[in-house]
Design a protein around this nucleic acid. Structure first.
Length: 183
DNA sequence: CCAGACGTTGTT
DNA sequence: GTCTGG
DNA sequence: CCAGACGTTGTT
DNA sequence: GTCTGG
């Protein structure tokens, strides 16, 4: 599976626009995603993910974000199968839904991937009544179940792919969800 | 009708 | 500036 | 999203 | 494939 959803109606097997993410707010009506939203939902497993904080124009600080218990995430995803008319080959692609940031993510970024609770996996994947699609699952994941920490800039280069990428920057404290929000 | 868009993030 | 790979 | 490439001829 | 703008 390739990241970057190619709609089934694509002429050349490429998305002529960015489809690595799909907004929860518009996924049901967007021509590029609505069919996949109705019929081809998937889970995208991940041990952690990264977001870049931009405190100012010149500074980009990557963060790693994971479950507090280091368990895997399941991002809410959609997939497509595009058929090459010439070769008959099928190209499978996917996208990851985004939503508003929770209290942990908000200082880092204005969006976050939709993360599903284990209890909702089955319902997310199940073919469903078109009038009862699981739109209610597209919510920010609870901040108190997640943790975030600063990492080095090497993660920004896609050539780099090894465990050192998630090592915390030295002398940096782990960021956790504010505990004062509810008194 | 036809041609062109179909998207996100972040930035302005 | 724009595209590609990850 | 990010960072990095973005090209040809001719040679291996 | 389907919608929108012209």
């Amino acid at each position: 599976m390739r990241w970057g959803l190619v709609p089934f109606w694509s002429k050349d097997g490429k998305a002529s626009f960015s489809t690595i993410n799909a907004k929860s707010e518009t996924v049901a009506t967007s021509p590029a995603f609505r069919e996949a939203w109705k019929q081809r939902r998937c889970l995208v497993p991940a041990d952690w993910f990264y977001e870049w904080q931009k405190p100012d124009e010149k500074t980009k600080q990557p963060f790693a974000i994971a479950n507090k218990d280091d368990g895997m995430f399941a991002f809410a995803g959609l997939w497509e199968s595009w058929k090459d008319r010439a070769t008959g080959q099928k190209l499978r692609t996917f996208t990851i839904l985004t939503t508003d940031p929770n209290e942990l993510m908000e200082p880092i970024h204005n969006r976050m991937p939709v993360i599903l609770h284990r209890r909702d996996y089955e319902r997310w994947l199940a073919p469903s009544d078109p009038t009862n699609l699981p739109i209610d699952l597209l919510r920010p994941y609870p901040a108190d179940e997640m943790k975030a920490w600063k990492v080095g800039k090497a993660v920004g280069n896609t050539r780099n792919n090894d465990p050192s990428l998630i090592e915390p920057l030295r002398d940096e404290e782990e960021v956790t969800a504010p505990l004062t929000l509810f008194g």
